[in-house]
Each structure stands twice: as structure tokens, then as C-alpha cells.
Design a binder for these strands. Structure first.
Lengths: 164, 164
DNA sequence: ATAAACGGTACTCTTTTAGTACTATTTAAG
DNA sequence: CTTAAATAGTACTAAAAGAGTACCGTTTAT
């Protein structure tokens, strides 16, 4: 555990891509094709993002999605909030109270909440713009597929652990 | 998601309790009774903790477990490492490489790894001693049960979200 | 009127997590 | 030297969560 869900991962991917072309409308199937994800899945992600006002949608023929505000104003924390189902928190009792009879005297809980705060702040400090940063693609060249977990079926044995 | 597993939660609970009596040996069933957890579950947790040298075990009659070193030298990150099954990482590709064909050009991955680092550091900065801190219990009074998720069956609807 | 798009709900399949059961090994005590 | 209380390890089962899909409704340019 301690993972974000795949939907959240897809979300960052989709939003990152959209951030490269702030003025264009993307249909769900467009994005699915470009990013190598399933069309219904992308649709689902975009719907959730829309409910949380991270993207705006245009309905009808030639409709689609675009970022609802500049990428600098969208934080990773907001993406997580939009796509994770359970409320933010490393433990159940750090996300909501009333779960356990000893809350008042529970040191452990208080400390998990503190840790929680640090993690959350880390996510708030990274914006979508940061995720795109130094390599904006040339407008119009939409063909290059980006990386995405779903597109990988044959998983190779991990040969390395990164950030220990 | 973005949760630690229950086993990890139990682990912090167990270790926190043991840290109050560094010189005593605790049997798995002792701890289970005191903390209100299932005996086999506690056993499982302690075994994993033992493999990672966070507790030492004494076998045989009157055996049991104790912390393998002072609580100050045990970090939450180490507990997580011992009890989470998958390697630390918010996304699959931030924990191990070779999962995806576009790693080299993938900005998103690089940024998740950065976020990862921050989160991990937060966990490393909190020691078991911090979790116990200002209220060491009087040695010998072992009866007071501490809080634990497993002991709560009838879950009440969350009425509040804490750290937003 | 039609087709291409979004919107919502509900369902199913798979994976992961949680918990349990069983058996072997160790060791103090009688 | 036998017994009982403890840890050690493995394997299994059941429940929960995640991921993906399908279906039907609504909107709107042509």
C-alpha cells in the first residue's frame, strides 16, 4: 500500500497531457488513443475531474474537455482528492473521527495526523505545471504516445529500488 | 487509497505499547489481549517485525518479544517497510523501473519520485519514541487497553473530516 | 433527424488485504 | 525426559477494494 490508485495515476497523465494544449478541447476517446488507455476508463476519470472542477466540459457534437484553470493553479493534492474515493488520510482514524473509543488518549492517532499533514503539504506543493515543466510539446503534434501503466501488460521483474 | 495497511497500523500500536516497557518480554497473546486485537494477527505482525530486526524474540517457554533497540532508533518508515508488502512508492513506476517503455522521457514519473522522497522523509523523521512521547505509563500497570482499529466492529458514520 | 460527444449509474471481474489454521521447533520446569 | 508454553513458517480462505465495462440518457452542431 501507500499507493495512489491507478485512476489517480491516469488522472495526472491525462491532465499533464491536456496542460500542453490549454486551448484545445480533447474528447475522451482522443485522450485514450493518445495515451494508450481504455476509452471508458479515461471517460470515468474525466467525469470525476469535472465534478471537482479541474476540467470543464463542453457537451454535444465536437464537445470535449479542457483544463478549467491554468496548470499552475492545479495541485497534485487536488487531483488526488478528485480521484481517490476515500477521504485523504494514511489511517482510517486520521481521516475521520468516531471510529474508536480511545481517541482522546490516543497518542498514536495524533501522530498519524501530524504525519498526514506533512504528506498532504507535499502534494499541495506540486502543481500540474511542475509535472509538465521543461518540455512543452509543439502544438499540433499530438501523435506521440505518453507513458501509462495500463499499456504495460507483461510486467518485468523489478531490478531496482529507487528512492530508499 | 494512500493508506497504510491495517497490519502496519497494528504494528505501530504494538510497538508503541512495547516501547513503554523496554525491559519486559511480551508474548503475542499478551499483546493481543491488552490491545484488543486477534492473537494470530498480532503473531503475524510480530513475526514480520522480527524479520526486519525491529523486535527480537525469545523462543520457548516464557519467551516473547521485546524491542530490538531503543524506540528513538526506530522510525515509522522502518515499520512501514517491515509490514507493507510492496516496496515503498506512491506509484508502481516510482517504486521500481522497467515497467513502462517511456521512462526516459516521462516527466510524470520523475515528479512522482520526487514527491515520493518527500513523503518518505516525513516517515523517517518520526520515531517510535515520538509516538509514545509525553505520557509514559507506570511500569506494571499493564491493564489499560489502548485503541485499535480491529476492536471496533460497529463503525459509525464519519461525521467530520480532519486535516483538509 | 442524426451522430458525436458528455453524464450517470450499476455491474462484474480481478487483485489485494485480512485473518485463520496447521505444523514444526524451541526451551524452562517438573 | 516428558510436558507445556511459547515462537517460526507456510498455506489457505474469505472479505474488501479497485479496475474496468456496459448501458442508457442528455446535449448540440450539422
Amino acid at each position: 500500500m501507500l499507493r495512489i490508485s491507478k485512476l489517480t495515476d491516469y488522472g495526472t497523465l491525462v491532465l499533464t497531457h491536456m496542460a500542453n494544449f490549454p486551448d484545445r478541447l480533447f474528447s475522451a476517446s482522443d485522450l485514450a488513443g493518445t495515451l494508450g488507455l481504455g476509452a471508458p476508463t479515461v471517460s470515468k476519470v474525466l467525469k470525476s475531474l469535472g465534478r471537482h472542477d479541474l476540467v470543464r466540459s463542453v457537451r454535444g457534437l465536437h464537445g470535449g474537455y479542457a483544463l478549467s484553470r491554468p496548470a499552475v493553479q492545479i495541485s497534485v493534492a487536488q487531483i488526488v482528492d478528485a480521484l481517490e474515493e476515500q477521504p485523504f488520510g494514511l489511517t482510517e482514524c486520521s481521516a475521520s473521527s468516531g471510529l474508536c473509543d480511545f481517541e482522546s488518549g490516543c497518542r498514536v492517532r495524533a501522530n498519524w495526523q501530524r504525519i498526514n499533514g506533512v504528506v498532504r503539504r507535499a502534494l499541495e506543493d506540486v502543481s500540474l505545471a511542475d509535472m509538465v515543466s521543461p518540455l512543452p510539446m509543439v502544438a499540433g503534434s499530438d501523435a506521440r504516445p505518453m507513458t501509462g501503466p495500463q499499456s504495460i501488460k507483461g510486467r518485468i521483474a523489478p531490478d531496482q529500488e529507487s528512492a530508499r
